[in-house]
Write a protein that binds this DNA or RNA. Structure first.
Length: 729
DNA sequence: CGAAAGGCTCTTTTT
DNA sequence: GAGCCTTTCG
């Protein structure tokens, strides 16, 4: 098979330019993954390069697996040995092997986001800092920022100026201490420590430079400073570095990704070849044109011209509704129709949104319609409370110094060790500078326990429980060990007593299934690999294309995916673009890119939905349509107002989500009515809420904006016979 | 010590 | 409206 057959000239150039630095600017749907895969295959097949010498860095494990699968199809068994993975997994692999040289135990554990936050909270408690004033989230973000700019605690201290930065510095120092004590690293450390390792030990770096003669990076627009340095280090000698990206799809600046890396690439690698992939094979002409309209609103960008030979396709539907429930009804009705009338499958459709919280309403409605769906994100499996509990047991068994895990489970299930007790143990451990586990052991060995007999018994029991499990872990496989943990702690009974115990127990069984995949390793190895896996998997990784179900997914997670039908819900000011971006032009451009990413996921059909009002925090607020809707040329769009007879009324009224908004006869107004106010002019009713013997009416006025009025007092006149206003602003 | 109730903030986005 | 934290009571 000819590897470059059926490629267009640019794609071909990207594949065949094997030597020297190469920058591929690839628009959405331009065959980016295909180019990467075929380039690797070309290196192996046509240039006779040993697969072991090739490294491909991707953004998600799913992308890595996809490339691996395709490579397998292309080359058969030959591809074995290409190093494929995310920055994080590749660095973890390097550190497992080389970490000793920088004082890192090979069995280190990786703390995920939740663990990081708990650690920060612990530091705050210890140092009597107010978690309200300095939120763990903001501190973590500051620390992560420091790490992503290669500032260790000392370097950070040297440049800290504001009071906040001084606080960060203090927390940062203690945070690192605790990580080290627990033989743990966080996500950022994986990269930072690898880069440090390469800096401090040139011989090690040289080894890897020699090993990896060809390096490719996917989603280059979303790399941050450390990641970029990492690949520059690897490529410094041979300069065989190929990066593929699209500045218009850069949506991770909040994770310190820097589009500037694309510009820097041409400076850092003078003479780099640049290939533009501008032909789109994915979307219809209309979808692509709408996408171009949207992204054209960004000033900070190089103009490029995407084009396609695909048909124009059907027009884009912009649908407006009165509530998020109705919005979801619209989506459900439409998916049903597509399946019944257009021969689509459920899995052809995806619903995309800005924030995870938006998934709840469509979920509920889909259940009522019996539309199978899979939810990506939300509370992620490995972040579930019960799953983390079991993982904490495993981590503690694996490493008795892991204070964070010990704290998590010392009283789970409840064994009479309360807050006060743990605090005293922590103080004791703090003064003796030992881990909590060691502290416990020592306290138990003292003549007279400082705790009362009941607590002492509980603590002794806990210590011997862990000791026993440690011994058993030496000979039991992971599933067996998990069984023993559950058995000895009575965790199952504990779960069953809690709400939703049944399904939570099933999560444990699922975790056990995953653990069983490591059965061929020897116990220690299995433990390390398993713990690494649970820290580094992401939600899209498990996305199974075989299941026939509609997908609910955030716009961020949708990057890199494609669907025949895409619904983007919540196209409203404040949501998309998110209100946080309002006062920052840079962030606003990122919102626009995010919207662009969503739109360009669609192959055949695109629906953009917005509602007049939506519950934010229990309170309903009216929103105006997203500015991005306005940017789409009107000839590409068909507008639909969903209340205009599209929905079966009984479905709306049966819905508790909507039902309570429509009130009884006393009230002569309902949501969606067109009204006239003697002072504020014309408007539309967006909410009615009963208060005492009256109703609070929220009206979105054409001129005056949103106002809340009392029904009995407001000089409101209902405008009969008015149609539901499809385009308000 | 722990369960239960009340009060508080909170929403981006995730490897 | 929920999840998390704090307070309160048994």
């Amino acid at each position: 098979m000819d590897i470059v057959a059926s490629f267009n000239p640019s794609q071909r150039q990207a594949v065949e330019t094997t030597e020297g630095p190469l920058l591929v600017l690839a628009g959405p749907g331009s065959g980016k993954t295909r180019v990467i895969t075929h380039r690797a295959a070309y290196l192996i097949r046509e240039c006779g390069i040993n697969p072991l010498c090739i490294m491909v860095v991707t953004f998600t494990n799913k992308a890595a697996r996809e490339i691996q699968d395709r490579l397998g199809l292309l080359l058969g068994q030959q591809e074995k040995g290409v190093t494929l993975g995310t920055f994080h997994s590749i660095c973890a692999r390097i550190l497992r092997r080389e970490g000793k040289t920088v004082g890192l135990s090979p069995g280190f554990v990786i703390y995920d986001d939740d663990d990081q936050l708990s650690l920060i909270k612990q530091v705050l408690r210890e140092s009597n800092l107010d978690a309200k004033k300095y939120t763990p989230r903001s501190l973590l973000s500051a620390i992560s920022g420091a790490k992503n700019h290669l500032l260790d605690t000392e370097a950070y201290a040297a440049q800290a100026q504001s009071y906040f930065e001084e606080i960060v510095q203090r927390v940062y120092e203690r945070y690192q201490q605790l990580l080290q004590r627990g033989q743990a690293v966080d996500f950022d450390d994986l990269l930072l420590k690898t880069v440090d390792l390469f800096n401090e030990h040139p011989a090690v770096l040289e080894k890897y430079q020699a090993d990896y003669h060809y390096v490719m990076v996917d989603e280059f627009q979303d790399t941050n400073a450390v990641q970029y340095i990492f690949i520059k280090q690897l490529a410094a000698g041979h300069r065989n570095i190929c990066v593929v990206g699209d500045p218009d799809q850069s949506i991770y600046s909040w994770r310190f990704a820097d589009i500037g890396n694309i510009r820097s690439f041409e400076e850092d690698f003078p003479g780099a070849n640049v290939v533009l992939l501008e032909q789109n094979y994915r979307s219809t002409g209309n979808i692509l044109e709408a996408a171009s309209d949207i992204i054209a609103g960004n000033v900070q960008r190089k103009q490029n011209k995407l084009w396609t030979e695909n048909e124009e396709g059907v027009k884009i539907t912009v649908a407006e509704s009165l509530s998020e429930a109705e919005e979801a009804h619209f989506v459900a009705e439409e998916i049903e129709r597509l399946v019944k009338e257009e021969g689509m499958s459920f899995k052809d459709s995806a619903v995309m949104y800005r924030v995870n919280a938006q998934s709840r309403v469509p979920e509920e409605i889909f259940m009522r319609y019996n539309i199978p769906y899979r939810l990506i994100g939300g509370t992620r499996f490995y972040h579930r409370h019960e799953v983390k509990d079991v993982i904490a047991y495993l981590r503690l068994i694996h490493n008795l110094q892991d204070d964070l895990s010990l704290l998590r489970i010392i009283n789970v299930p409840v064994r009479g060790v309360g807050q006060r007790t743990t605090q005293r143990i922590q103080e004791w451990a703090g003064t003796k500078k030992v881990s909590l586990y060691d502290a416990l052991k020592q306290i138990m060995n003292e003549e007279r326990s400082p705790f009362n007999p009941r607590i002492t018994r509980a603590l002794t029991g806990f210590v011997s429980l862990i000791d026993d499990l440690v011994i058993e872990s030496g000979c039991l496989g992971l599933p067996g060990l998990i069984d023993r943990v559950i058995e000895k702690t009575g965790y199952r009974e504990h779960l069953m007593e809690s709400e939703g115990g049944e399904s939570r127990w099933e999560n444990i069984l699922e975790l056990r299934e995953v653990a069983a995949e490591f059965s061929e390793f020897e116990p220690h190895e299995a433990m390390v690999s398993f713990l690494e896996k649970v820290s580094l998997v992401s939600e899209v990784d498990g996305l199974d294309d075989e299941v026939d179900a509609a997908t609910l997914i955030t716009l961020h997670q949708a990057k890199g995916l494609e669907f025949r039908v895409v619904f983007i819900i919540g196209m409203e000011e404040g949501l998309l673009p998110h209100r946080r971006a309002f006062d920052s032009p840079e962030e606003m451009e990122e919102e626009r890119r995010l919207c662009y990413v969503g739109v360009t996921r669609a192959k055949e059909r695109l629906y953009l939905l917005r509602t007049y009002c939506r519950s934010f925090f229990g309170t309903r607020t009216a929103n105006s349509p997203s500015r991005f809707l306005r940017d789409i040329s009107s000839h590409l769009v068909i507008k639909e107002g969903s209340p205009a007879g599209h929905l079966k009324p009984e479905r709306i009224f049966n819905s508790h989500l909507v039902g309570e908004d429509f009130l009884d006869n006393e009230l002569t107004l309902k949501i969606g009515d067109y009204v006239c106010h003697s002072m504020f002019g014309d408007g539309v009713v967006v909410n009615c809420f009963p208060v005492r013997n009256d109703y609070e009416i929220t009206v979105d006025f054409k001129e005056e904006g949103v106002k809340k009025l009392l029904f009995s007092l407001a000089p409101l006149e209902k405008l009969e016979g008015q149609e539901f206003p499809v385009s308000w602003r």
